[in-house]
């Protein structure tokens, strides 16, 4: 069973989501980046909607109906488009799409390499951070105490 077969979207919802994914994060030849509708990434999206599945399904049905099934109307998100209007009128729902699509797009190996990340989980290798130069604090030390005394001694 592929991941996409496990997703609880019907065909029209799935194709609507694919159109939105492509409109949100399109492929870039210049950056050699896939789009969010890339088959591998899109399968991951379909399998990962989790707690947001119902909200997405409802919104997809509404959008599919808005364009009367003509998905070409969802392939652009620029000014004056259906998606631009949808985002401005349904910010919370648009944010659910943004999370559902981004959380899978930006963990794809190709994408992670392209943005300068190693394609791996943070643990167990971790990362390095500069320890820093604590002499930067000399002006703060020189200024001296800044807290207020509150008076009185121990109470109990």
């Amino acid at each position: 069973m592929t991941k996409s077969n496990t997703a609880p979207f019907d065909d029209s919802q799935r194709e609507t989501l694919r159109a939105i994914a492509a409109a949100m994060i399109p492929a870039s030849e210049e950056s050699q980046l896939p789009g969010a509708d890339d088959p591998t990434i899109f399968d991951d999206i379909l399998a990962s909607t989790g707690r947001d599945t119902k909200a997405l399904a409802d919104a997809l049905t509404m959008l599919h109906s808005t364009v009367s099934g003509d998905l070409s109307a969802l392939r652009s998100a620029g000014p004056g488009t259906v998606l631009e209007r949808f985002r401005s009128e349904n910010g919370a729902t648009a944010a659910i799409f943004e999370l559902a699509i981004s959380q899978c797009y930006y963990r794809d190996d190709r994408v992670m390499r392209a943005i300068g990340m190693e394609p791996r989980a943070p643990y167990p290798k971790g990362y390095a951070i500069e320890r820093g130069d604590w002499s930067l604090l000399d002006p703060v030390r020189a200024r001296g105490k800044i807290y207020r005394d509150a008076g009185e001694g121990k109470t109990a």
């Binding site: 985002r87 981004s102 959380q103 992670m112």
Partner: peptide, 27 residues
């Protein structure tokens, strides 16, 4: 921020667009 939160918060704040320009703004 991690890449996902960078993308999501950037889109929410209007700093990263949908469509053309998404990748350049993200970077």
């Amino acid at each position: 921020l991690g890449p996902v939160v960078n993308a999501v918060s950037g889109m929410a704040d209007g700093l990263i667009p949908w469509g053309e320009g998404h990748h350049a703004a993200f970077r």
